Simulated assay, not measured.
Amino acid sequence: MKLLVTGANGFVGKNLLVHLQEMPDVDVVAYTRSNTVDELPELLKGVDAVIHLAGINRPQDDSEFVKGNTDLTQCLADALEALAKHHGKRIPVLYSSSIQAERNNPYGLSKKAAEDALLQLEQNTGISVYIYRLANVFGKWCKPNYNSMVATFCHNIIRDIPIEIHNEDAEVKLVYVDDVVQSLITTARQAVNATQNNEELPKTGFVEANPVYTETVGSIAKQLKAFKHSRETLISERVGTGFTRKLYSTYVSYLPTDAFTYTVPKYVDERGVFVEMLKTPDAGQFSYFTAHPGITRGGHYHHTKTEKFLVIKGKACFKFRHMVTGEFYELFTEGESPEIVETVPGWSHDITNVGDDEMVVMLWANEIFDRENPDTYACPVVKPHSN
């Protein structure tokens, strides 16, 4: 599949091209600001579909809206119509419009006129046209202090630059750049395959990249500040799913290289070191500790707290004793054979380095350690004497 991508150096264009480069069956012809509309007929040769992303949204003069949005799209439509009429080739076109096309402002009017030019092209030639009225697109590589609130907020909050919010309760609709890219690629493939195989085309007209998220300006700013604060508290936000996952990935993408790392506290005593890495609001915390040869750690029990231990270096002996029955159990594990050891409420437990070298152990607990209510009670594990 060969695609012409206009606006290839723009925010969505950069993300799209990287995804397309990962696909061995796709060739890309890029149209950027270094090209002219006169080159379009030549660039369209051999192309299977057009993804039209080029446009103007922050001009110095409103007249640039017409030139960069309406006129450019009309030139593209004219070139596509000429190919269809003179060579019988109907090349599907996907257009990134904007929800602003519904509004009576210079930008919106120019995008609406561009949509109309493509819809007229479809009517004149039967060329398949897919129009995306995109909400506010956010994600990596979007230029801050330009036309994206999310990009500006991420850039400024990371660098301790104040952000301006005029109405915290104002709602905005957002769509993530990878979701846009995936939708564009899927629609382009379906349109090309249907065109080449004389099959039924996907429904043309207006297409939506999903999911679309509705958030308030204030809630976005609050969440981004919480991401920043999490480096101090070590408590991660819920960044594994949905909008928060995508917003966090966007936030991290604006980190300068000197902020790729951050330090965490290290607690040292005669036994070794203990380091907390990550805490979560509802899924516990992750830590690691070391122990010198012969050193025993633990010697306590919990009523509710549970833990998982993974020895990643060295040799360990785990001992357990039931707090009511006195039942005793011990086991051995080592870093060469990864094995999770789980502590059980109501059993006192400890871990001893039985190797000749320092032992390193990764630890997960199902709750954040609370010094005021630690649910940790000292009780050394004593191995019963054999008869």
Rank of each mutant, 00 (worst) to 15 (best):
residue 5 V to N: 02
residue 5 V to Q: 04
residue 11 F to D: 02
residue 12 V to Y: 09
residue 12 V to H: 07
residue 22 E to P: 02
residue 22 E to L: 11
residue 30 A to M: 15
residue 38 D to P: 10
residue 44 L to K: 02
residue 46 G to F: 13
residue 57 N to R: 13
residue 61 D to I: 06
residue 66 V to S: 04
residue 67 K to Q: 15
residue 68 G to M: 11
residue 76 L to T: 03
residue 84 A to W: 07
residue 84 A to R: 13
residue 87 H to A: 13
residue 95 Y to P: 03
residue 97 S to G: 10
residue 100 Q to E: 12
residue 100 Q to R: 09
residue 105 N to D: 03
residue 106 P to T: 07
residue 110 S to Q: 05
residue 111 K to V: 00
residue 114 A to G: 09
residue 118 L to R: 05
residue 118 L to A: 02
residue 120 Q to V: 08
residue 122 E to H: 15
residue 123 Q to V: 10
residue 123 Q to L: 10
residue 124 N to W: 03
residue 124 N to V: 02
residue 126 G to M: 08
residue 130 Y to A: 00
residue 131 I to D: 01
residue 133 R to Y: 08
residue 135 A to P: 11
residue 137 V to K: 14
residue 137 V to A: 09
residue 141 W to A: 01
residue 141 W to M: 15
residue 143 K to E: 02
residue 148 S to Q: 01
residue 151 A to Q: 02
residue 152 T to A: 04
residue 153 F to K: 10
residue 153 F to Y: 14
residue 155 H to R: 12
residue 157 I to R: 00
residue 161 I to C: 01
residue 169 D to H: 15
residue 170 A to K: 15
residue 175 V to I: 00
residue 176 Y to M: 03
residue 179 D to G: 13
residue 180 V to N: 03
residue 181 V to Y: 13
residue 185 I to F: 03
residue 186 T to C: 01
residue 188 A to F: 10
residue 188 A to K: 10
residue 190 Q to M: 14
residue 193 N to I: 05
residue 193 N to T: 08
residue 193 N to S: 10
residue 204 T to A: 05
residue 212 V to G: 09
residue 212 V to Q: 13
residue 213 Y to V: 11
residue 218 G to M: 15
residue 219 S to M: 15
residue 223 Q to S: 01
residue 225 K to P: 00
residue 226 A to E: 08
residue 226 A to S: 00
residue 227 F to Q: 04
residue 228 K to N: 08
residue 240 G to Q: 14
residue 244 T to Q: 12
residue 244 T to M: 11
residue 245 R to C: 05
residue 245 R to Y: 05
residue 249 S to D: 10
residue 250 T to Q: 12
residue 252 V to Q: 04
residue 253 S to N: 08
residue 254 Y to Q: 04
residue 256 P to Y: 04
residue 259 A to S: 14
residue 263 T to N: 13
residue 265 P to W: 15
residue 267 Y to H: 05
residue 276 E to L: 07
residue 279 K to N: 07
residue 279 K to C: 05
residue 283 A to G: 06
residue 283 A to T: 13
residue 283 A to S: 12
residue 284 G to W: 15
residue 287 S to I: 04
residue 291 A to C: 14
residue 292 H to P: 05
residue 297 R to F: 07
residue 298 G to S: 02
residue 302 H to Q: 08
residue 303 H to Y: 01
residue 303 H to A: 03
residue 304 T to I: 01
residue 308 K to Q: 13
residue 314 G to Y: 11
residue 317 C to P: 01
residue 318 F to G: 10
residue 322 H to Q: 11
residue 324 V to L: 09
residue 325 T to G: 06
residue 338 P to L: 06
residue 338 P to Q: 05
residue 339 E to M: 14
residue 339 E to S: 07
residue 343 T to V: 07
residue 345 P to G: 13
residue 349 H to D: 05
residue 351 I to T: 14
residue 351 I to N: 09
residue 352 T to L: 10
residue 352 T to C: 09
residue 354 V to T: 12
residue 355 G to P: 11
residue 358 E to C: 15
residue 359 M to T: 06
residue 362 M to V: 00
residue 364 W to T: 01
residue 371 R to I: 15
residue 380 P to N: 08
residue 385 H to C: 09
